[in-house]
Design a binder for these strands. Structure first.
Lengths: 129, 129
DNA sequence: CGGTATCCGTTATGATACTG
DNA sequence: CAGTATCATAACGGATACCG
């Protein structure tokens, strides 16, 4: 009979982990959080973010920032200027998240080579069958 | 003129960060890694994982495990028994990833309440416009 | 500059049925 | 038990056009 594995201090039924994973783990969020974390004052304007993230569309940048704002990770400040300026800054909660996210990014950076090799090996083996 | 923000020690052009984020950050991977990390011996069989992850379909569990295996994070061992038994175990690399993933999960666990409140507040404000 | 609205193809994922 | 195969559909996300 199958055993249920449990994670200490975490109940998958109670905490809808998935809801948050969908945020941290979507296509652009981690990237945006890392960029903000490494900006002066942990703050950047829309166009800077757009320029700093290769391949992101305006639509997705807007959408992702809104979601981060909704989660209280990012603050949005509009300046009444012409042309308009909008700045995004990590909130206290966002700055806090910076730590684990930074460690994850560092891990990826450090192990990317190994992962790539593993993928090649796996794909090669798969193609021979 | 827009400034490009850079992350120290990480070049978005060189390391295809996105490829890996897509893995760690997809719908089920973090969950599976955490479960394996908290299993005895960091090892569990297919049916245990299935039972421990509310809502996952058999297809997605298979797919996700294959991808984790491809990245060298998880090892798959088939036992020639009837009925068959298949065990998945974190590799050395996977055990290593455990650390940053665990911290992220702990962060989520600790801040989930705050995030939920922020969402409610945001949605309420949005509905009044 | 920093959006929003719309259209639309691609991908991700669930349901279901079948298999060694 | 642990898959695979097939189908259907929902969600994602890019391109484009337009606006304050």
């Amino acid at each position: 009979m199958a055993k249920t594995i449990t994670i200490p201090g975490y109940d998958p039924q109670k905490c809808e982990l998935r809801s948050f994973i969908d945020r941290v783990a979507d296509k652009w969020s981690l990237m945006i959080i890392s960029l903000l974390a490494n900006s002066p004052d942990e703050k950047a304007r829309f166009s800077d973010l757009k320029k700093s993230i290769p391949g992101i569309s305006q639509r997705m940048l807007t959408t992702t920032l809104r979601n981060l704002e909704r989660d209280g990770l990012v603050n949005r400040e509009v300046f009444a200027e012409v042309p308009p300026r909008v700045e995004y800054q990590l909130t206290k909660l966002g700055k806090n998240l910076k730590v684990p996210v930074g460690q994850l990014m560092a891990w990826i950076e450090g192990n990317w080579g190994t992962i790539k090799k593993s993928r090649e090996k796996f794909d090669l083996k798969a193609s021979r069958s």
